[in-house]
């Protein structure tokens, strides 16, 4: 995942995309999606280590791994939504991108609901 490789690939891709935009605009969109997919794939090798380290930290701190996996899931939903939104805005369909963002917010909310529930159970159990 050396950073310079990603920079070189990005610049090379932008240079190839710009002439194709004039000749045939459908391929420009397909190419930009392909490039972002390839760059994302290259980044994930590092992300695996980061997530692993976070899991070890949460085990050491005796945090329940279920809660922590929800946090990681929310981060993943955020990444995916942002990726799709950028692709949609690139293809200048902003409305579709906004729908994807709205869907990701709802998905995050659904993920976070159990945590809020057991927070309230905790509060009620204190019966102040």
């Amino acid at each position: 995942m050396d950073f310079s490789k990603i920079v070189i690939i990005a610049i090379f891709a932008v240079i190839t995309i710009s002439p194709i935009k004039q000749i045939k605009s459908e391929f420009a969109i397909a190419l930009s999606v392909g490039v972002s997919v390839v760059l994302m794939l290259m980044l994930f090798d590092e992300l695996f280590n980061v997530v692993q380290i976070f899991y070890n930290l949460s085990d050491k701190a005796q945090i329940d791994s279920g809660i922590f996996s929800i946090v990681i899931k929310v981060v993943g939903i955020g990444y995916l939504a942002e990726f799709t939104n950028n692709v949609c805005v690139d293809a200048n369909c902003k409305s579709v991108g906004d729908k994807v963002i709205l869907a990701s917010k709802i998905a995050i909310l659904l993920c976070a609901l159990p945590i809020v529930e057991n927070l309230f159970e905790l509060l009620f159990s204190l019966n102040l």
């Binding site: 045939k24 391929f27 420009a28 390839v38 760059l39």
Partner: peptide
């Protein structure tokens, strides 16, 4: 990775 980009670009130009 670059082969994918070059392949798609070449297909675009060809078509």
């Amino acid at each position: 990775e670059i082969t994918l980009i070059v392949k798609i670009a070449s297909i675009g130009i060809l078509t």
